[in-house]
Each structure stands twice: as structure tokens, then as C-alpha cells.
Design a protein around this nucleic acid. Structure first.
Lengths: 317, 317
DNA sequence: CTGTTAGCGCTTTCAC
DNA sequence: GTGAAAGCGCTAACAG
């Protein structure tokens, strides 16, 4: 009873006494077909538990039904959220999601991409660690559309995400508007060299813009060591501004220790939403980023898609 | 320059002046082949950016290289962790991961399964919402191996996960050993009818076993409303025991409010690990569950694979 | 060691 | 309206 051979269109053709061409017309409501034969075919297909072999379909028609997704890591809650959106939208459009995590390794990333290409994906959604934009331009030029999420990939590859620069500018401005005297900008990732940290770089720019205009004191925590050893003076009103909720999570402890310290997150990830509903933060719809990425990939129309964000005025600033 | 036709084995054959058979031997180190021709073929394949069409490969050879994964939801941090393990192990073995979330809908789940079957997956890893075990037995009997993760799916479908019953028994015992006078068992999911809540049912059994032996007072919070309106008396030492960290996260607020209340988690998810390193909890390797699921799926050997857990003695009990 | 050939299961002309 | 036949790109069995 094991490994029973699967029912094929040929089997159906034999069973119904028609040709495979007719089967195809029935199954895909294509062209002219007698309603009766069609009904009969659909009925027997159903009865036999026929499942179309997508490999064969894709091979024969040249139209793939797979979307490739390469992200950095599922530990960062941002990505599961985006992936949820991707999966939902892909499913809605009849596509399946081929997924892989690069684990922040450029080699691994290329490996993932290679595997996806060899699966003839309709397109690739990627949050890239690497800076080598030409790599992706080649892929796109070879016929596989590419969309970058959360990390810009040059001008040529369409991007879906928020306006990182102005989001962080607004975040800093919000803190400043509350009269804080010193801001610690927490972004250990800034010290990572040779990686694509486009989003983080933009956020940093936005931060600097806001600070320069204000003249208020600030300090950049750009390594993990600095974050570890950070002690916040108690003689002035200080605020921690995190460049991603991954860091917000690590800062909570420090925040709790001291009175009179402000804390602002960035991303508004699920766990913080549940655990610290009072957190002042920058929020946006991560699922939407995933959905838009799929739309952009499949509908084409090359331009970027910027998703809105908003400042949530909690009680920690 | 767009949509350049892809290089095929036939192209390579022409380019190298050999037959497709030889190309195949070179590319897959199969059978006898002249080292020189092989080198030449590999070189030109590389130069032309040849990527093998896996559709064709799978169709022709009958050996798929895709693993289907259907989970409930990526919001629950448990699943990203498991998925990470699955992806890593699948990748290591040369498989790609086809992913989808059912969103706790049995219909959606079947839809996902259907799509995976039509992609000829080598097997399916599923955390099922539905109780209909025969559905999966049919799939397995039709030749596609199925492995259940985290939620048992009858006796016939191999399972990978922890021993939920004894894990929860131990958790309760740990609380009791610290002299608490009343335990609130927080498991709102228990009121969900018609869904597969096998893991939760087993945990509940384990809990009851421990409590019955002890004679200590307890109360089961089996709906969200009860959790919402829960107020913990201050006249005795009470502890909250959560049946999953999804609930632990929701209980943190209540825990913080009251002195003298204990709290125990279950799962040890990333966000709590970072935010509440002091949490007393039940820990196990979720990534390992994913890896083992892949191994079981691909290596066969039908029996369940039970992953170890341990009690982390934090400061909240 | 290498070439030839016949498929895998489906789609897609092109006739009838 | 339907059938026949030629592929999609690769693998595998069989000659040579």
C-alpha cells in the first residue's frame, strides 16, 4: 500500500476515455470543452485524488509558482513577521514560498540564492548581508526579478520597507521634544564592516541629522562591548534610543535599573508589544512589507515601495 | 538583456562537443568519465553560469529535493526556532524548505498540504491543528512521509518533540518543592474544542499528576477571560505555571504587580531569555526538534524522537 | 569512457 | 470540441 504510484493526467485520460489535451482543458478551464466531459473529468480527478505535478507543469509551461525568500535569521522577530506577510500574499496568489536563512553569511546567502534559482523561482525576495549589488543585478538581468526587503540593495533593485532615515530622525526628534539632555544611540551593528547594513546606516544618518540641529549631547554605542559596559549618569536626563528592537530587548535591563532614564525602541516587535506595552517606539507593519514585496515581485513595476511608520508615544520617553 | 534564456545541459553539450549524457556524468560525478573532459565541462558550466533546473531533475529522476513544512504561526516564537533547525538541516542535506503557515485553520492547513504534495515534496513536517489523523495516514500511505512536530498526530505518524507530560509534571513538582500553597495553571488553549491540542493536553495531564499526589490547591486558567480577570490573593504563596511561553509573556505583568508570587515559564523562548534571564522555566532545544524532524523524515525509521528538556532554576520560583 | 535514446508529467500547438 | 504529437531540461539504461 506504500508508495502507490500517483495518478497522472494520462491515467485520467485513460479512465475518462479522452486525450490528455482534453484533461488539461478541463483542469485549467482553458479553451472550448463540452461541459459534460468537463464535469466527468473533474469528478473522476477528484475521486482518484489527483494532484497535479507542479514540477511537470512548471517545466512544461515555463511558468513557475514558487517565490524564493532569503532572510538573515529567524531569531530577529522582524523576519518572522515579514515572512508571515510574504507567505500570506504568496499563497493568495497561488504561489508557494521557498524559504532559507543566510545566518548573516554572504557565502550562505549565495548558496541559498543558487538553490532558489535552480528551482526556477518566479522571483527572489532578499534581505542581503552582502554589499555586492552587481550580483543581484546579474540575477535580475538573467530574468529573475529581485526585491530587497529592509536592506536597500543599490538603486537598481526595487526595495520595500520604511523610510529608515526619516523614521529615525523623527524618533530622535520625539525624544528631544521631551527635554532629554543626552541621548545614547544604541546600534552595535554599526561596527560591522563589509556587511550590508544599509538600513542601519540610514537610520544613523537620520539620527545625526536630528541631533546636529538640536545641539544636544549624544553618544553612539556602536559595539557590543560598549553596550555591555554602558553606565548611565544620574546627574542628567538621559535617553536610550535603540536602532532595532533586538537592542531594545538588551537595553531593558539597563533601563529598569535607573530612574529618570528614557528608552525608545524601533520596530515594535511582538514580544515587546506584549511585555512592554508602555514602550515608546517606532512602529510599522512588518507583515505589510512582506505582502508588498510579493506584489512588487509578481506585478513588476520596478519602483520602491515605502511603507508608513508612526511614532508610538508610550511612557518610556 | 532581460530574460536571457538559461543555459541548459544541451547547450553545454554543444559547447563542449560532447553528449548530454557526458555532461550529466561530469555534473553529478556519476560513472566513469575522463578527468579532462570532466574538468572542461565543469569549467564551461561555471563560465556560462549554468544552474541545473531542479524541476527537470526531480521530474526525470523521481527524487525530490524539497521538504514541506506546515506550522501554525510564526508569531509564536517556538516556530521560528524550530524552522531554523529544519532549514539548517535540510540545507545541509541538499534540500530546500517549502514553508507555509496555517494560521490555526484546518482548511488552510489542508490547502498547504495540497500545495506541498503537488510540489512532490520528499516529505512533510507538520504541526497540525486538526485531529483527523487518518488524513495524514492516507498521505503517508500514498508515499509521502509525514513527521509531526510539537503536536502528536496519533500513534502512526512519527513525532518529534519533548515528553510534554513528564516535562510539565517536573515543572509542577519543582514549584511544589519550593513550598508554594496554590498553583495557577495558565493554559487558555485548553478551552479550544475541535482542535488538535495534543501537546497541551499532555502537559495538562502531567500537571494534574503532580498536583494530585501533592494535595496542594490549584486552579486552572483555561480561558482568556479567566486570565484577563485573574487576581492573585496575597494571603498565601501562589505561583503561576504557564503551559507555554505565549502565556508566560502575558503573565509577566501580573507577576510584576504582586510581591510574593511565583512564575514559571515553559519553552524558554528567545525574547524571555533575553528580557527575563531570571525566569524559572522548562527549556529544551527547539532548533534540535527541527533538525531531528528532518532526519526522521529523510532517513525513515518510523519511531518517535524525544528531545530532552531541563528545568532552569531561575529566581522567579 | 562516451553517445543515443526514451522517458518523467504536463502544456501547447496544430490538425481534424 | 477533441486528439495527436512535440517538447520543457534532465536522468538513466543500454549500447558501443
Amino acid at each position: 500500500m506504500n508508495s502507490t504510484k500517483r495518478v497522472t493526467v494520462k491515467d485520467l485520460a485513460r479512465l475518462c476515455g479522452v486525450s490528455t489535451g482534453t484533461i488539461d482543458r478541463a483542469l485549467n478551464n482553458r479553451g472550448r470543452i463540452d461541459p459534460e466531459t468537463k464535469a466527468k473529468i473533474l469528478e473522476t480527478a477528484d475521486r482518484c485524488g489527483f494532484v497535479k505535478n507542479q514540477y511537470a507543469r512548471a517545466l512544461s509551461s515555463g511558468r513557475p509558482n514558487l517565490i524564493g525568500v532569503v532572510i538573515l535569521n529567524l531569531k530577529n522577530e522582524y523576519f518572522p513577521a515579514v515572512l508571515t506577510g510574504i507567505d500570506a500574499e504568496a499563497h493568495k496568489r497561488g504561489y508557494s514560498t521557498l524559504f532559507s536563512a543566510s545566518g548573516y553569511s554572504a557565502d550562505e546567502e549565495r548558496d541559498c540564492i543558487r538553490r532558489m534559482l535552480s528551482m526556477n523561482v518566479a522571483g527572489i525576495i532578499v534581505c542581503s548581508v552582502q554589499n555586492d549589488v552587481s550580483y543581484y543585478e546579474q540575477i535580475r538581468d538573467a530574468g529573475t526579478p529581485v526585491v530587497a526587503v529592509s536592506n536597500l540593495l543599490g538603486e537598481q533593485i526595487p526595495y520595500v520597507g520604511i523610510d529608515d532615515r526619516s523614521a529615525m530622525r523623527d524618533a530622535a526628534a520625539h525624544i528631544l521634544s521631551r527635554g532629554y539632555e543626552k541621548i545614547y544611540y544604541v546600534a552595535p551593528v554599526l561596527s560591522k564592516k563589509g556587511q550590508n547594513i544599509a538600513a542601519q546606516a540610514l537610520r544613523y544618518e537620520g539620527f545625526l541629522t536630528a541631533m546636529e540641529q538640536s545641539g544636544v549631547e549624544y553618544e553612539v554605542i556602536d559595539t557590543n562591548d560598549k553596550l555591555q559596559s554602558l553606565t548611565i549618569p544620574s546627574n542628567k536626563r538621559c535617553a536610550l534610543l535603540c536602532s532595532s528592537d533586538v537592542y531594545t530587548q538588551r537595553c531593558i535591563a539597563k533601563y529598569r535599573g535607573c530612574d529618570n532614564v528614557g528608552l525608545m525602541g524601533f520596530d515594535n516587535v511582538e514580544s515587546l508589544r506584549v511585555l512592554f506595552p508602555d514602550l515608546t517606539t517606532v512602529a510599522y507593519d512588518m507583515g505589510l512589507i512582506g505582502e508588498e514585496a510579493v506584489s512588487l515581485l509578481l506585478d513588476g513595476g520596478g519602483s520602491d515601495k515605502i511603507v508608513p511608520y508612526r511614532i508610538i508615544e508610550g511612557k518610556t520617553i
